[in-house]
């Protein structure tokens, strides 16, 4: 397990470096010098050179990359072109919205999806099993921002039950207030996320229901519930946990989009604004932090899976098929 942990950690670091390189290259190599965003239309060559020097884009790429990596490693994410404020603290401030939004939505999605997915599998022969399955099939096709729009329309604009968007100025000073403004966005993301989760839970449950070991223990005299509890649950958890990491990452992406729908001051709206204004340090900073988060989530999910599944513990290479 320790060897695996070290290997997986090394893999995480390499992934981060590679992701950083991809981020760096994409932003530098694609047409358009980052310095352009500092310039007005019709700038003379002297101004362009000055801007390039200020950004550092006149130096050789490897050197730029190393400098940039050093900055990223110390979470020095540069300063916004527009507001000239440092990007790091701004991202930290935005995480106060995005992290609770993502986690709450994810938790709600899991809480909904586990029993529903189980029922969809276990009751496949009753009328509601296929119905639940059909609803989830429909659900994975629903665009998350559209569901958000519909929920705003009905709960905020029509019934006036909840705020249509925004977040308290003083963040979590009044938790009830903050939660109220997060309620609709959380439900929006959770509903869409649970649709795909339901399918995974259902599939994992079907595998367990179909499994030989469940049949063995029932043939030995275990009750269905007992066998399901002692053997089914853990076995079904293995594949579900392996996708939970990706689902959490997807939830985060959902949050990025949904923040725009609900005008929440989170990472997503920061990114959207950064892109629209060609505020390149902001875009880079947000993407770096997001990718970092996604990769760490993947790392944790892999570890969790190892802890549950003894079959994985012996193998150290990821490519063991």
């Amino acid at each position: 397990m320790t060897t695996y942990l070290l290997r997986r950690l090394a893999f995480l670091v390499v992934s981060l470096l590679l992701a950083a390189a991809v981020l760096f290259l994409l932003l530098r190599l694609l047409p358009g010098d980052p310095a352009n965003s500092l310039l007005t239309i019709g700038a003379d060559p002297g101004q362009i050179a000055a801007a390039r020097h200020q950004i550092g884009s006149d130096r050789p790429l490897p050197q730029q990359f190393v400098t940039w990596l050093g900055q990223m490693a110390t979470f020095d994410l540069g300063e916004s072109f527009i507001s000239t404020l440092p990007v790091g603290p701004e991202i930290a401030a935005r995480l106060v919205v995005t992290v609770p939004l993502t986690l709450l939505a994810f938790l709600l999605a899991v809480v909904v999806a586990v029993p529903v997915g189980f029922l969809a599998a276990h009751r496949a022969n009753r009328w509601y099993g296929p119905l639940l399955n059909g609803v989830s099939q429909f659900g994975i096709a629903v665009p998350v921002f559209w569901l958000g729009m519909l929920l705003i329309t009905s709960f905020a604009l029509y019934f006036h039950l909840l705020p249509a968007g925004g977040f308290p100025q003083d963040d979590w000073a009044d938790p009830a207030d903050a939660l109220t403004s997060l309620l609709l966005p959380v439900v929006t993301i959770a509903l869409v996320m649970s649709a795909s989760l339901i399918r995974y839970v259902r599939s994992a449950t079907l595998d367990v229901l179909d499994s030989d070991y469940l049949r063995t223990f029932r043939a030995l005299g275990s009750s269905f519930t007992g066998a399901m509890w002692r053997h089914g649950l853990r076995n079904a958890a293995v594949p579900v946990i392996s996708i939970l990491g990706i689902e959490l990452a997807t939830t985060f992406l959902g949050a990025v989009v949904v923040e725009s729908v609900f005008a929440l001051p989170g990472l997503g709206s920061m990114l959207a604004k950064g892109i629209a204004q060609h505020d390149y340090p902001i875009v880079q900073g947000v993407l770096f932090v997001s990718t970092f988060g996604v990769l760490v989530i993947g790392f944790l999910a892999d570890l969790a899976q190892r802890l549950i599944d003894p079959r994985l513990r012996g193998t150290t290479t990821r490519s063991a098929r």
Partner: peptide, 13 residues
Amino acid sequence: AFPTLLLAMLLVA
């Protein structure tokens, strides 16, 4: 692991 949507945003940016 590099999220699609973020990659797309990056490209668009």
